[in-house]
Amino acid sequence: MGEPLRVGVVGVGTISKQYLDVLTRLPNVDVVAAADLDTSRAKAVAEKYEGIRALTPDELYDDAEVEAVLNLTIPVAHASVSLAALGAGKHVYGEKPLAVTREEARPVLEAAAKAGLRVGCAPDTVLGTGTQTARALLDRGDIGVPTAATAFFVSPGPEPWHPDPAFYYQPGGGPLLDMGPYYLSALITLLGPIKRVTGRASRAYEQRTVGSGPKQGTTFPVEVDTHVSGVIEHESGVLTTVVTSFDVWAAKLPRIEVYGTEGTLAVPDPNMFDGDVEVFSPSSREWTVAKVAGGYANAGRGYGVADMARAIRQGGKHRASGELAYHVLDVMESLLESAAQGGAPVDVESTVERPDPVPEGATPDAA
């Protein structure tokens, strides 16, 4: 396995606990430092987790012990933090999205390539047993040749439970940019890259009301479309219908389904690492739950970091890559561009290799 990859975390807000709880139990990653603009947060992390030092962001970039930076800052800071880390000679793994726009994301990949460094990006949920079992079943032909798919994320929006939800409705927010990375990363893992999209978008309300917390009852403006529908054409020829919405109170819809010449595959929630994969066979006319056939078992947020650490130490590709995250961002922006043009088809400029599957029983330090 070699020495664990020494990681420093920049941005230790709410999501950082999930990462730290997982990474501190994985053998090929050693979290050695934490930094935040709010120094009290970094100090709290250092007090809770043994072996982690509290630093400022600049101190962390300059720290010789840190080999890779885990970028858990807010989306608008993703590109600048990643570029600072790469400029200091550190590998980078970040929360989704890679950046707010393609224009911000491209320099990150270019800087990494020039320096010979790795860039990884969430979501790594696709590395768990849910999506990877579905991938294994597709690859072995359980439903024949895939021809079409559907993907649905619908909700009433985060304001019923989130104490400060306005940022979800500002530029860079909305249901597609918020949840789309989970669904599109899973679809690309299952069916390959995307070459063309057609989209339409709308919004049901011009204002929203905070439903909980100290701001409960206050209103805020909606600045982005909150219902996005699209058709995406994979390079393989598969057509996927996608709906993401903050305008739906309730619905009986699948998360992701793949339709093939010899059956249908129901894929579990791509925001989770596991879940039942179900297969419908036309011969039996029944749905059956498939046995786990791939993926990291009992995985959690941070397995993508460990997968990248293995690739750095042993060579080869890491799966939750910056290139995949860039392609996902390109697809999302292309959908919104199509919607702004009244649904005119938009060619997706980027492409990416379909990530390698995660074999059943694999561990991120050895897969």
Rank of each mutant, 00 (worst) to 15 (best):
His318Tyr: 02
Glu235Thr: 14
Pro123Ala: 01
Lys90Phe: 11
Leu187Trp: 02
Gly213Ala: 12
Ala186Leu: 04
Val197Ile: 14
Ala306Trp: 00
Phe246Met: 04
Gln18Arg: 15
Thr240Leu: 04
Lys317Gln: 08
Leu5Tyr: 00
Ala54Phe: 05
Ala151Gln: 01
Arg106Gly: 00
Glu50Arg: 15
Pro270Glu: 03
Ser338Lys: 09
Pro268Leu: 06
Ala344His: 07
Ala111Val: 06
Leu184Asp: 08
Gly211Ile: 02
Asp356His: 07
Cys121Lys: 03
Thr56Gly: 08
Val222His: 13
Gly294Tyr: 08
Val238Met: 07
Val331Asn: 07
Ser212Pro: 00
Gly174Pro: 07
Gly361Val: 10
Phe167Asp: 06
Ser350Glu: 13
Ala266Phe: 01
His234Met: 08
Ser334Tyr: 09
Glu235Met: 09
Arg106Pro: 00
Ala136Pro: 00
Val243Trp: 04
Pro221Thr: 10
Glu159Val: 01
Gly300Ile: 02
Tyr182Asp: 09
Leu26Glu: 05
Pro254Phe: 05
Gly2Pro: 05
Ala33Glu: 11
Glu110Ser: 14
Ala99Thr: 11
Thr39Gly: 14
Gly157Phe: 02
His91Ala: 03
Asp62Thr: 10
Ala151Ser: 15
Gln170Arg: 15
Val231Arg: 15
Asp274His: 13
Lys215His: 14
Ala290Leu: 09
His234Trp: 09
Val238Glu: 03
Asp36Ala: 06
Ala112Asn: 10
Glu233Arg: 14
His318Ser: 01
Tyr19Ala: 10
Tyr19Thr: 02
Thr288Glu: 14
Phe220Lys: 12
Ala136Gly: 03
Glu235His: 11
Arg200Glu: 14
Gly302Arg: 06
Ala250Asp: 11
Thr150Arg: 11
Gly13Trp: 04
Asp36Ile: 03
Ala64Ile: 04
Glu59Tyr: 04
Pro160Ala: 00
Ser16Leu: 07
Tyr49Asn: 10
Val231Gln: 13
Val243Met: 10
Lys215Arg: 15
Trp287Glu: 07
Val100Gln: 13
Ser80Leu: 09
Ala344Met: 11
Asn28Phe: 09
Gly295Gln: 07
Gly322Lys: 05
Pro4Ser: 08
Pro268Gly: 02
Val248Phe: 09
Ala113Met: 07
Thr351Lys: 12
Gly300Trp: 04
Leu70Ala: 11
Ala85Leu: 12
Pro268His: 04
Glu104His: 13
Leu190Val: 03
Thr150Phe: 00
Ser40Gly: 08
Pro268Gln: 03
Ala339Gln: 06
Gly13Phe: 05
Gly302Val: 06
Pro175Arg: 10
Glu333Gly: 11
Ala44Cys: 03
Ile232Gly: 04
Leu329Gly: 08
Val210Asn: 08
Val31Lys: 06
